[in-house]
Design a protein around this nucleic acid. Sequence first.
RNA 1: GCCCUCGUGGUGAAAUUGGUAGACACAAAGGACUUAAAAUCCUUGCCCUUUUGGGAGUGCCAGUUCGAGUCUGGCCGAGGGCACCA
Length: 844
Amino acid sequence: MERVNFQAIEKKWQVKFNSSKLHNKNGKKFYCLEMFPYPSGKIHMGHVRNYTIGDVVARYKYLNGFNVLHPMGWDSFGLPAENAARLNNLNPKTWTEENIKTMKEQLKMLGLSIDWSLEISTCNKDYYKHQQELFIDFYNQGLVSRKETYVNWDPVEKTVLANEQVINGKGWRSNAVVERKKLSQWFFNITKFSDQLLKDMESLEGWPEKVKLMQKNWIGKSFGCELDFKIQSLKKNLRIFTTRPDTIFGASFIAISTDHKICENFNEDPNFKKFQKECSKIGTTEEALANAEKLGFETKLFAEHPFLKNKKLPIYVANFVLMDYGNGAIFGCPAHDQRDFDFAKKYNLPITRVVEDKNNSEVGEKMKEAYTGTGKIVNSEFLNNLSVNEAINTIINKIEEKKIGERKTLFRLKDWGISRQRYWGCPIPMIYLEDGSVVPVDKSELPITLPEDVDLNSSGNPLENHPRWKKTIHKKTGKPAIRETDTLDTFVDSSWYFLRFCSPKNEKYPFESKETNYWMPVDQYIGGIEHAILHLLYSRFFMKAVKQTNNEIKCSEPFKNLFTQGMVCHETYKDLEGNWLDPLEVEKTSEKKAIKKSDKSKVTVGPSESMSKSKKNTVDPETMIKQYGADSVRWFMLSDSPPEKDVQWSDAGVVSSSKFLQKIWNLNQSVLDRNKTKIKEDEKIQKSFENKIDLSVYKIDSAINNFQFNVAIAQFYEIYRYFNDSMKLGINNSIFIKNITKIMKLMIPFTPHLAYECLTNLNCKEIDQWPKINEKIIENSEVKMVIQINGKTRDVLAIKRNLEKDDVTKLVKKSLKANKHIMNKKILRTIFVKNKIINYIVNN
RNA sequence: GCCCUCGUGGUGAAAUUGGUAGACACAAAGGACUUAAAAUCCUUGCCCUUUUGGGAGUGCCAGUUCGAGUCUGGCCGAGGGCACCA
């Protein structure tokens, strides 16, 4: 057989793919989108997986008559460009544009069905000018604010990080320990949508439960009430928030945050200063914080218990009370909160049980830990004998009646800090006037572009340091003004790019309403699970904010269906000194053993982990494509594991993929060659052959629909073997032509180059049309009836569908295998499930 | 600590949702073709039996059921998310 020249075929078809669109004018719209890449230099296997999955979906939908939008762009602002530029002494723009060029070529090598005429790049002023306009719109709608807050300061990157960019107290990129610093920052008021972001998730049926749960926890809604405590000596009220007002009679102290306003009273107190210092010494990692010892500073102030006349509660400043949640103050009920319990133990505060525990009757200081379960309320005057929930309601009513507080719902979600003290980002279109006021620039002045002559080598914010850039004139008054020198968090760029794709060339507006309303929401969004919270939450916020700003836009949730794919993993290798080795430097001698190619020294084979540069366990997609062809790489990517799970890259796997594609090619050739020989036809065989193919077509189609690409591929292997074996049977060759055409069409989403080439050779007229799925094939096909005796399978009979119990039993009597187990025995009972199973219960 | 998900051969995994466990693939062993190699193809895969057969078996223990990988309860293990959120 002729060996296929995958490279030649691929090159030929890519010319077509690169200029084609998946448009079916009369079809229903389908917006297929994969998360766009950061142009870091070269594509990696993670991209290959992501975009292959997306391509299968896009092509599948197109072949099924949908009008498909399948765009691609570049998330091209961000710090790596700045760092690389500094290192190579060039402009971030140059670096970025070169990377985009390289990566675009690499993506094209994969044979993706992307409509490149829609390409966008977020660092392009044609894109970010609209982003600045959106910022001003949001500002005018009250969705932007400027706040003085403690921020996470990354001392290495010299920038502010959002909470979610701090991982275990360290910067997500620099890994430097994050410091606390008070700065004036821009915020998107995402908390204005807390409730809506939470509620609308119910409508997201096409999202993985896991992602929804993560967002739900992140938003963190909790019910409770606020409550005032009188501080007689200060003649002031102290307001606290609690979710457990039912435990108010168990309160034994009040604790406030070190940043609470009341603490200003102790600014002169050296002991307080000392305490503050001690608190700040505790590590900043979250784990350290969580495990840190509870520390308190006794203020000597007392608050009055709102329901017990003579009870006075001591007020402590405590290190475990957060200023930015609730009011930065709590009441402590040691018996029913573990933190309060630990604190009470340390400072010898009374412990009063107010909720009964069925399994533990210990009370007061004898309790070994806090009881947080439900039960009957005790020691609580008018709350006694109520359940926890009843008590919460009763006490809140009482609090509201007495006008000392009210019902309150609190969210854990915080506003989104978007200021970054960096150069390579979208400039914030705000200016500072001489009178101290801050106003947006006039829209006619957009875009506010980045200067190209910038010094990236001195520390701090490059825009701030630029000699002229920040000096401007306020258009309305003609007075001098200073530009905001912070740039936007790059998460802003990726929060609306999916909207821009609907009308990427429009110069006047961020997006045209008509186009946007037609294409949005994204019907299938595909990307990594690492964006489960940030990117997806921000995008959802943007959609809602856009809808509020622009009443022509109808969509309120950007992504109808979400699919999160797993990572690509590879074995790790270490040499004798413990240095990581690239797979290219290693020669495998057996499954678990390997040697170094250069000096034949022993190599330790480590577990398979997600590919990363630091572990050197990466495999370069371009090399693989050049060696085995894009179709083989795509095929392998989808064949081994379900797409939502991690996949192990293996060279052996991709080799076998390419061998299989060769076999498919050979099969095509054989079918074409077979015409020359005369065949004696057998109608029965022909019919059963066609049935079997139709059944496979059906199975592959439903597997694709369910994102079970690995199952679909297993079907291809099976059907190939069956097809190949059938070649010697009495089947008319026109039937083979017809059916291999079906199979090759099914392969288009997976291996488009090979499939199109074969279909062209088969002289197929309507290539871009999915084979008709015979929904009745299941009904028409035979079923395998399982014959059990006492629950043990004794035989499997292939029989006609829908046979009744008695007919089946007749057949069973004829089957020697099964019948010998029931012969001469009394059948006590028969369980019969049509088309599935018959189970005889016999007496032994 | 709290919440979630998942445990199936040497490996990646299937299993029409309660009905043949291990499809399909990788790796391994054996064989066929070949002077040889490559390529290709076939067979095997736990235990007992020479075979026909029979038995065990989806992390562990119990339960529901004619029947459990699938449902319920408990335990063990792995992964992920949140983390002093009052």
